[in-house]
Design a protein around this nucleic acid. Structure first.
Length: 481
DNA sequence: ATGTTC
């Protein structure tokens, strides 16, 4: 606490923590927020974390945070930090425990009016088809070598096995294959935790939701979105695999920190040079988790399509079940950016922040060259979700990044104490939202009141120019671990 | 987020 008096307002939605706010800061902090969010972030010690991250070796321009900022391990959730690829560091805490946690949106050509009668049947079938909850095993059983291939080669390998469609790859970052993955850098323990978890939802804030598109604006039509449309949102990550990889490399880098002579304000910021044995090994393992997470969401998509085919008695292709896009909001990526007029190769850490590139970037699929990259923003259970698109302004202001969701405002523990799962389920059903939860206590942790207002978060991102709203969806059915 | 304190 106590950073608020040092913060300077830059414009309506941007605040600067000057580089002299604490010892060791190499760059300022920039937080995209309104006053209310800023004050909460300070009370949460998250502003302090923004300032801490500004001390990382090789960080450029600023340590940033999106309006869904809240306290996290070392780095704030909602944080963006770019370090020089040659002289800077990579830090597992800047990616997070759930490596490549992300969201995808599966479209349909169905209108809500024609589909709503089938909703309970559909939800029950999805509930029976997609494994969920803590410690869950999946339906795909693979030999060790096969899992290694998924980690090394990503979603194309899964598609080659008949799970998912070839065209889905165009709707995934890196075409479903994060480069540089090396399964030999993944520990046996990480391997053991992840190997049976391909195609599982998980728990916590991970969910599968059926939603109805409520309001659209251009270029919605170009993205295949229309008002009244039934869509499916999937939020999941790399499960036990990513968690263990993060744990392993926090240990590895904790042991090597002295060797590199870094003095950091928080032990949780452990890191190693991008160009070091430890840094390269982490990135090779992180890439495995990224590929695993994309395969996870792709396998879940496969079962979603199967359920729709059974319930609507039509092929998934004729039901228009294309993937709009699959975003990862916990990842570090090597990207080129212009900083102070110089083109630099940077390691961009996004932790609870989403890449939001304009169509001009080579990373964006050709089909989105005109519209910009779709960004999928889940709200909390009782509220809306959004489709945004990336902007040129985001590239200039935030290394092409925007928010990732509403952001917690209450700890899981506090939410559990305050909300009863049974009551919440009834409340949501009273709002016309069907609920299937593996555990009612898990539902309570994710209660709407434990989150910020996603509308405000998205509005700030748009107001700051970091992305533009294209569609708003309301949930009609939610499935949680 | 997470075989929820190996």
């Amino acid at each position: 606490m106590g950073f608020l008096d040092k913060v300077k307002q830059i414009d309506e939605y941007a605040w600067e923590i000057p580089a002299d706010a604490r010892e060791g800061m190499r760059v300022p902090g920039i937080v995209f927020a309104d006053r209310e969010i800023l004050e909460k972030a300070d009370a949460d010690n998250a502003l302090q974390q923004v300032a801490n991250v500004a001390c990382l070796p090789g960080i450029v321009r600023a340590s940033m945070a999106m309006p869904d900022i809240h306290w996290g391990y070392g780095f704030p959730i909602g944080g963006v930090a770019a370090t020089l690829a040659e002289e800077g560091v990579i830090s597992p805490g800047g990616v997070g425990y759930d490596i490549s946690c992300g969201v995808r949106l599966v479209l349909t050509s169905l209108g809500w009016e024609e589909a709503k009668e089938k909703l309970p049947e559909l939800l029950d079938m999805l509930n029976a088809s997609v494994p969920k909850g803590l410690g869950t095993k999946g339906r795909i059983h693979l030999e060790r070598r096969e899992v290694e291939r998924l980690m090394a080669d990503g979603a194309p390998e899964l598609v080659a096995r008949g799970i998912g469609w070839e065209e889905d790859l165009e709707a995934m970052e890196e075409r479903g294959r994060y480069p540089g993955a090396d399964p030999s850098k993944v520990s046996e323990r990480a391997f053991a935790r992840g190997k049976d978890q391909v195609g599982t939802l998980g728990s916590g804030n991970h969910f599968l939701e059926i939603q109805v598109v409520e309001e659209t604006r251009p270029p919605a039509e170009k993205l295949g979105l229309f008002e009244g449309q039934l869509v499916v949102m999937v939020h999941s990550g790399s499960r036990g695999l990513g968690h263990q990889i993060c744990t392993d490399y926090i240990d590895v880098m904790g042991a090597s920190i002295k060797k590199y002579g870094y003095s950091l304000p928080d032990r949780q910021l452990v890191c190693a040079p991008v160009e070091s044995r430890e840094g390269r090994d982490y990135l090779a393992a992180m890439a495995c988790a990224a590929n695993f997470a994309m395969c996870n969401r792709e396998a879940i998509t496969h079962w979603i399509r199967e359920c729709f085919e059974k319930v609507f008695r039509a092929g998934a292709r004729s039901l228009g079940m294309h993937v709009l896009y699959d975003v990862s909001h916990n990842l570090a990526k090597m990207e080129e950016h212009v900083v102070d007029g110089k083109r630099l190769t940077l390691m961009v850490h996004r932790k609870g922040a989403t890449r939001a590139f304009p169509g001009s970037r080579p990373e964006v699929p050709d089909k989105y060259a005109e519209t910009g990259q779709p960004v999928i923003i889940p709200g909390d259970m009782g509220s809306h979700s959004y489709v945004l698109v990336g902007t040129e302004e985001a590239l200039e202001k935030s290394f092409g990044s925007t928010c990732h969701g509403a952001g917690r405002t209450m700890s899981r523990k506090a939410a559990k104490k305050q909300v009863r799962g049974e009551e919440l389920k009834r409340r949501l059903e009273g709002m016309g939202i069907l609920v299937r939860a593996a555990q009612l206590s898990g539902l309570a942790e994710e209660a709407p009141e434990a989150y910020k207002d996603v509308r405000a978060v998205v509005q700030i991102c748009e107001g700051a120019g970091l992305s533009r709203r294209v569609a708003r969806m309301r949930p009609v059915a939610v499935m949680k671990g």
